[in-house]
């Protein structure tokens, strides 16, 4: 038996079995064959995985801000669960990006135990993030959150359903798993959308305001970046423009049941010719990253 001089001795080394969670990082793709499919471009596949991974990571962080702040306990738990699913998708996608193109991973001090997917999440600067701007926007009230979750999960579900037949077996497996998770997210958001639309005058007013706030960033989801077009041509990715019609039909279904018109608002303009997929982000992104990354960056050789 170990004789501990103080309560903290046991934290250093020794028998890891005393911990509920392992003290070592584990590779989420341990044993998975990450060989590139024939004809796939490594750098493009990695860049594409960063786009899908960053969407999930940044949105997961935003949604997790609802933990302990939601209107009631059920919604608190629901939003935290959605955030957890997305975080899991992000981890796998960033690990896939790192395996495809190790050069995409920021360099850390020698001996750093930080795994590649964490290096990508915590040690890239704002301009290196490839998420759409929709996911980085501040949560707003619960109605705004419901609208944004409906738009995002409808888009992402349509996308990952097609991605499940990717020629990259890793991406295909991650996508097939995500389909099951996103089905629950989209139904959750759709039901709340309807509930708020048919609720009180105030809930409906807030929902309409939410739509007006979220809608200008909706178009950006379906504008293909060169990388997305390239991976789609190579059979490993999906051109987001190809899911626009399906998403449109589904959203129209929710709008018509709710008795709401889709907003007629111009889309948020690009910044210096670029959008989120080019690393050009909106004001909230910097603050989000500051909070998300500060602890990891303060301890680049830390073990967690």
């Amino acid at each position: 038996m170990t004789d501990h001089h103080n309560a903290y001795d046991g934290l250093l080394g020794g028998d890891a079995s005393q911990w509920a969670f392992g003290t070592d990082f584990e590779d989420p793709l341990a044993g998975v064959d990450t060989t590139l499919p024939e004809g796939a471009d490594a750098a493009a596949l990695a860049a594409y995985c960063l786009m899908l991974g960053d969407d999930a990571l940044i949105y997961s962080h935003r949604l997790s801000e609802w933990a302990s702040n939601a209107p009631d306990l059920e919604e608190d738990i629901a939003l935290a669960n959605v955030a957890l699913d997305l975080l899991g998708q992000a981890r796998l996608l960033l690990a896939r990006a790192a395996a495809a193109d190790p050069d995409a991973v920021p360099a850390l001090p020698p001996g750093s135990p930080v795994p590649p997917e964490d290096a990508l999440a915590f040690f890239r600067d704002e301009h290196a993030f490839r998420n759409v701007r929709l996911v980085e926007a501040e949560n707003g009230d619960f109605a705004v959150t419901v609208v944004r979750l409906l738009v995002f999960s409808t888009y992402r579900l349509a996308l990952v359903q097609r991605l499940a037949t990717s020629r990259d077996p890793v991406l295909s497996a991650i996508a097939a798993k995500a389909v099951k998770e996103l089905t629950y997210h989209r139904d959750y958001a759709g039901r709340w959308f309807l509930t708020l639309a048919r609720g009180t005058e105030e809930s409906r007013r807030r929902l309409v305001r939410g739509l007006d706030l979220v809608w200008p960033l909706h178009d950006e989801l379906f504008v293909a970046h060169d990388v997305e077009r390239l991976v789609a041509e190579q059979g490993v990715g999906v051109d987001p423009a190809s899911v626009a019609d399906e998403v449109d039909v589904l959203l129209e279904q929710v709008f018509s049941v709710s008795g709401l018109e889709r907003p007629r608002l111009p889309r948020t303009g690009s910044v210096a010719g670029g959008t989120g997929r080019h690393g050009r982000h909106s004001e909230g992104m910097g603050r989000l990253l500051a909070e998300m990354q500060v602890v990891a960056r303060a301890h680049p050789t830390g073990r967690w």
């Binding site: 079995s17 584990e26 341990a30 957890l84 899991g88």
Partner: peptide, 30 residues
């Protein structure tokens, strides 16, 4: 689930229980 936090514990538990039974070299693949 993609983000299930229990997965890390499952791996650890597998390694430890197998070690208890004399299987010292264990790798857990996904």
């Amino acid at each position: 689930y993609s983000g299930c936090p229990a997965m890390a514990t499952m791996r650890d538990d597998l390694v430890h229980r197998l070690a208890d039974h004399g299987y010292d070299e264990v790798s857990v693949r996904v």
